[in-house]
Design a protein around this nucleic acid. Structure first.
Length: 314
DNA sequence: AATGCTCTCAACCGCGGGATA
DNA sequence: ATATCCCGCGGTTGAGAGCAT
């Protein structure tokens, strides 16, 4: 494969453009079009390589470039398209007239990416993260919950309701699971998670005192638990990300908003919780291998409460 | 006021791929 | 079929602005 000679080898200028250079470039392109970028610098009287000229024009001097802050709509468009395409900046830019791929890339890296991380969302997969830091608030809530449970009085129907809501919370807010490569955190986190999760399954919680639990959801709606069998949340490799994005794409095309899905923690990390739930909540075929796109599981109230195994779970 | 740190974003770099000789 | 040219893309860098101490 041939390669264009590097600017350095020809003694061409690099670095920031001067006003004079900008004017020369704009004048030439307005009069002649850019034509061959390789030939342009010489014709325009610029001591730059064609690549540098092209970049300067497309990212800065082009007359149709829209400058200024990104609007809410633009931000939303970037998020939506990125969740489908990933870091395909030029493709994303085609959805935002007047914005360049470089500008969008910068905006993503400096603003949106951080914003998603702060929200506990993996910026590559657009799914909830399950590393220790993003899930810390949930762990703390669960730890408080366990403490409260130790003081619990004998419980009846109300307690059952509370427990169901707690399970719902667990399912919607997966406990922290670090990646295998992050061994320093993995041991403590997983053990702690299993411990807390198991506790929840063996004694009733007192939800009124626990922050973060959604008490507004009626007890009867609990069976609306949706359980996609994709356990990988944060990506540890490029392939993971690509596959998750492909899956996101597929789900989006089916009209599903993956960000609102309910995710289970990895069965290998929290076996007692997930295995019990899976075995009790129907025929979901679960796998730690996320390329298995199993159908979601929907159970109605009757089905759930007729199931003696689910009562055992309580 | 001086210094150090963080953030932003224009610009560069290396690579892949299509077109062409 | 192969080599070369050229373009465009995504990742990365670094200068400078802004902010904190």
């Amino acid at each position: 494969m041939g390669r264009s000679p590097c600017c350095d080898e020809n003694g061409l200028k690099k670095g920031p453009w001067t006003l004079e250079e900008d004017q020369k470039l704009v004048k030439y392109i307005k009069e002649n079009g850019h034509g061959s970028w390789r030939a342009l610098p010489k014709l325009a009287g610029l001591n730059r390589c064609g690549k540098s000229c092209r970049l300067r024009w497309t990212n800065y001097l082009r007359p149709d470039i829209k400058r200024g802050k990104f609007s809410q709509e633009e931000e939303q468009t970037i998020l939506n398209v990125h969740s489908i395409l990933g870091n395909k900046w030029s493709a994303i830019a085609s959805h935002l007239p007047g914005r360049t791929d470089n500008e969008i890339k910068n905006f993503w890296n400096t603003h949106l990416r951080k914003k998603l991380i702060q929200m506990g969302i993996d910026p590559m997969t657009h799914r909830p993260r399950i590393d220790i830091f993003s899930s810390l608030p949930h762990l703390i809530a669960l730890a408080n919950l366990k403490e409260l449970m130790d003081q619990q009085q004998p419980w009846e129907e109300a307690a059952q309701r509370a427990k169901l809501q707690c399970l719902q919370y667990l399912l919607q807010n997966p406990p922290s699971i670090s990646s295998p490569s992050n061994n320093m955190h993995t041991t403590f986190t997983d053990m702690e998670t299993v411990d807390i999760s198991n506790s929840l399954l063996s004694s009733p919680p007192q939800l009124a005192s626990v922050q973060g639990l959604d008490d507004s959801i009626p007890f009867s709606r609990l069976p609306d638990l949706q359980i996609p069998c994709d356990y990988r949340i944060s990506s540890s490799s490029k392939d993971d990300t690509a596959q998750a994005q492909a899956q996101n794409h597929a789900m989006l095309s089916q009209g599903e908003n993956t960000c609102n899905s309910t995710w289970l923690p990895s069965p290998s990390a929290v076996p007692s919780v997930t295995e019990t739930l899976i075995s009790n909540l129907g025929d979901a075929s679960c796998s730690s291998d996320f390329d298995v796109a199993a159908p979601s599981v929907w159970l109605d109230d009757h089905q759930l409460f007729q199931d003696p195994l689910f009562h055992n779970l309580l």
